[in-house]
Design a protein around this nucleic acid. Structure first.
Lengths: 120, 120
DNA sequence: GCTTATGGACTACACCCGTAGTCAATCTAG
DNA sequence: CTAGATTGACTACGGGTGTAGTCCATAAGC
């Protein structure tokens, strides 16, 4: 199930707030993307068609909610990136992230906890 | 400078061994991808056109070498993924990677060293 | 009640991408 | 020297993707 970058914007909204209608999604996105409502409806239709969203009739309109778990999707995509760019090794990716964007205190603490658990 | 997945396969070869000709690249890829030499040449032409490769004439053929650093490209793409999928936070990505693919001893050691340095 | 806004369904269209094919020139094996 | 292989340049083409437009039915404002 391939989700394109534009479609992902929609998914991100619905993962945060499942069960919105097209107009509400448009509203949630209006600050970041200047998308015509038609565009959003096209993306919604494609996502439904490819099984990434389910619909529920609500009067004259549909309410949309994700049919795929955000975590599962993130995991799959992260794995793909690591394979494509880093030959499957995760550590260099983390090093790059640390360098490019900097990890803050919380990130570092979180990672340390994670490593501790992994070493167990 | 957008590099597509297919183009990235070429870049990966040239990052490892800059200065190859089309036929040599085809040879380096023949085990993983069953690409026609035409396909490879098309990808090379597109990469040159978008400035990701430089060429050097060598008799009747070209030798290709990357015009972008692998590290810089990796960094940019890693950042894009984190933004698109994780709202900019790196730690959840690492958690996913650890979960999905498992980090081995070396990875863990590497990350610990990295965190140590970051905490400085 | 008429007009206008809104909903979903279907259609459009240009550009990108993967995957080659054609062509003309040139190199190479016999 | 001739026939085939190889090279880069250009062309092709179907499916995916971003970005809407059209159509028809219905809801809502006046």
């Amino acid at each position: 199930m391939q989700i394109t970058p534009a479609e992902l914007e929609i998914m991100n909204v619905l993962w945060r707030a499942p069960g919105l209608g097209a107009a509400e999604i448009a509203d949630a996105l209006k600050d970041d993307k200047s998308w015509n409502i038609r565009t959003i409806k096209t993306l919604l239709a494609r996502l439904v068609e490819k099984g990434a969203l389910t619909t529920e009739q609500d009067g004259r309109r549909y309410l949309y909610r994700p049919a795929v778990e955000q975590g599962a999707y993130q995991k799959k995509e992260a794995g793909r990136l690591v394979d494509r760019l880093f030959g499957g090794r995760a550590a260099p990716l983390v090093a790059h992230l640390a360098d490019a964007r900097g990890l803050d205190e919380d990130d570092i603490a979180e990672l340390e906890a994670l490593l501790g658990k992994l070493k167990k």
